[in-house]
Design a protein around this nucleic acid. Structure first.
Lengths: 106, 106
DNA sequence: ACGCTATTTCCATATTTTTCGAAATTGAGT
DNA sequence: ACTCAATTTCGAAAAATATGGAAATAGCGT
């Protein structure tokens, strides 16, 4: 994982609306969720939602798949895990990282 | 961990310069690093560095401690772990999270 | 082809972020 | 008090982001 990519993903998640959006997709699981359904849950204009979604897709945190007229969105778990791995790796490079939490990631 | 706080921390790390800065502090370990030393490694103007550092401190990812005229900066490991925990928690809320990695965090 | 629904793109604006020189501040040490 | 070094604050300009209305597009079903 390159620093630039990690930063882009972190920035993508670093917006309350997008973090909430991502969380909704995570909750939806493997079935994913149509853009319209997400919109219903977030109650924001479709154009705004589309912009945020694009950001998440572009950074590799979300994938999309067409099903007829609707677009199914899914959280990209491996992508998130790579990011978490990157952070944990940084965090524990020094081994003084307090909790055993991220060590389990190694 | 509240969504707002998580988003603020993610946004703070979501800037290449700040992520690099944070990484430098992580590498420095418990001894921490003076602002001036960090500046030497990053080669950016002090005022710019100060702004970035403030952002990391404000979001709780970095702590600072005065030692005479120099300010020692340290990565806040527990803070980072809380963030990683939050992300992992989100990621695995659905249990379809592919790798076993973040499961170990629970 | 037409109509319908879902979603995106275009465009424009308000806000926030990034950047950094210059000036101010802080805290020894003398 | 004075000076030097370290760091922050001020002020300001350029760039990026966030937001959303309106128009365009895509893809069925008829």
């Amino acid at each position: 994982m390159k620093l630039e990519k990690a930063a882009a993903q972190l920035e993508a998640l670093g917006n309350p609306t997008r973090l909430q959006l991502y969380r909704i997709l995570v909750r939806a699981g493997d079935d994913g969720l149509a853009v319209g359904s997400v919109q219903g849950k977030l109650d924001i204009p479709s154009s705004t939602l589309s912009h945020h979604l694009k950001r998440l897709v572009d950074t590799g945190l979300v994938t999309q798949e067409r099903q007829a007229t609707t677009l199914i969105c899914r959280a990209n778990y491996p992508g998130m895990n790579a990011l978490i791995g990157y952070l944990a790796d940084e965090c524990c490079a020094d081994a003084t990282c307090a909790p055993a939490a991220s060590k389990a990631l190694v």
